[in-house]
């Protein structure tokens, strides 16, 4: 790590203890979030992207536990905060949540309380993390709502989430997340539940806000097209492991892992191959309890090497300062 690093996730494993057995949702992942940059995490559902976000916020479900690894927050590099070690009731953790790191959820409808006004929830958050009075907090809330492009904010602040449209709701969600001026915003599929035109507006809004507030974003999505517009660094996840990581250019122009390559093939493109079919990745994601040795992708990988990929886990190999891949085939090709 270096001085640009704001958040470090190191060798993090998260297991869910369920009746049916232990589910390894995340299995030893590491990545850094630099100051004022955007990290994208891509993967199919069940790849552990959201669990990663929940772990950073320490809002994992009761059945989950951080098995190994560290989450270090370097706001003050001389005095890093070990988020993974904080007890549940610690005031430092209370300060991390909402003040230092805030979160934008996928479904703004269910992420707002149905019985409290938008303003109420914003003011609560502001009063919790700043010494503002109720009146000041209210003014700040209105100001933030205006900033994220909600018209008539004086009226909206007293409305309930179900009175707003989907796009407006997500804007309000962003307003609430940014109101405390956090250093990191985690956006967990923020545009998935929105129309495509609204999606673009929200993405633009987030970029504008990032420029204005000088914050880092962890952007979680299954949509490679969205991430191309947003992220500086990209982590490609599959079944709780990072398959490939690199800058956006590296991932999109020099993908090395067969999974990344296949994902990119599955994006519809205008012009090229217009009358051909999209190439889907063959096979199904294995069930969460199907224990398998070796590379997690080998059951669906077109270039899996029998006797190697299905037996031993490949190491993460660096190809440049920023680009690393975990794949036997790539290693073999080197030789």
């Amino acid at each position: 790590m270096d001085e640009k690093t704001l958040l470090e996730v190191k060798d993090l494993s998260i297991y869910f203890n369920l009746r049916e057995g232990v589910l390894k949702a995340i299995d030893g992942i590491s990545f850094n979030v630099d100051k004022n940059s955007t990290v994208g995490i891509v993967g199919e559902s069940g790849s552990g992207k959201s669990v990663t976000a929940q772990a950073i916020m320490r809002i994992l479900p009761e059945t989950a536990e951080i098995k190994t690894g560290e989450i270090n927050y370097y706001k003050d590099p001389a005095n890093p905060i070990k988020i993974h070690e904080l007890p549940d009731k610690s005031p430092i953790l209370g300060n991390i949540r909402g003040k230092e790191i805030s979160m934008i959820f996928q479904e703004p409808m269910s992420a707002f309380s149905p019985l409290h006004t938008i303003g109420h929830q914003m003011i609560e958050c502001l009063r919790l993390h700043t010494p503002m009075t109720k009146q000041e907090a209210r003014e700040r809330a209105i100001e933030m709502l205006a900033k994220v492009g909600i018209s008539n904010p004086e009226k909206r602040v007293d409305q309930y989430s179900f009175e707003l449209s989907g796009g407006m709701r997500q804007r309000a969600m962003i307003a609430i997340a940014l109101s405390t001026n956090p250093s990191i915003v985690i956006a967990d599929e923020p545009t998935t539940s929105l129309d495509v035109t609204i999606q673009a507006q929200i993405l633009k809004l987030m970029k504008d806000m990032q420029a204005e507030f000088n914050m880092s974003i962890i952007f979680i999505t299954h949509n490679l097209g969205v991430i191309a517009q947003m992220a500086d660094m990209i982590q490609v996840m599959y079944l709780g492991k990072i398959m490939e990581s690199g800058t956006a250019e590296e991932i999109f122009y020099e993908p090395r892992h067969p999974y990344t390559i296949n994902l990119l093939k599955a994006i519809p493109k205008i012009g090229s191959n217009a009358n051909g079919k999209l190439e889907a990745i063959p096979g199904q994601i294995p069930g969460p309890f199907d224990v398998q040795k070796g590379c997690k992708f080998c059951t669906r990988c077109p270039s899996a090497i029998k006797g190697l990929c299905d037996l031993r886990t490949p190491e993460l190999k660096k190809y440049s300062e920023t680009h690393s891949v975990s794949c036997w085939k790539c290693l073999e090709q080197e030789k």
Partner: peptide, 24 residues
């Protein structure tokens, strides 16, 4: 989710329970 969201905003302990799920 709205409870998790409130938790992610830093609301915790009794306030979190009484204000959100209990209220609903």
């Amino acid at each position: 989710l709205y409870v998790t969201a409130a938790k992610a905003r830093g609301v915790s302990g009794k306030a979190l329970l009484l204000k959100y799920p209990v209220r609903v």
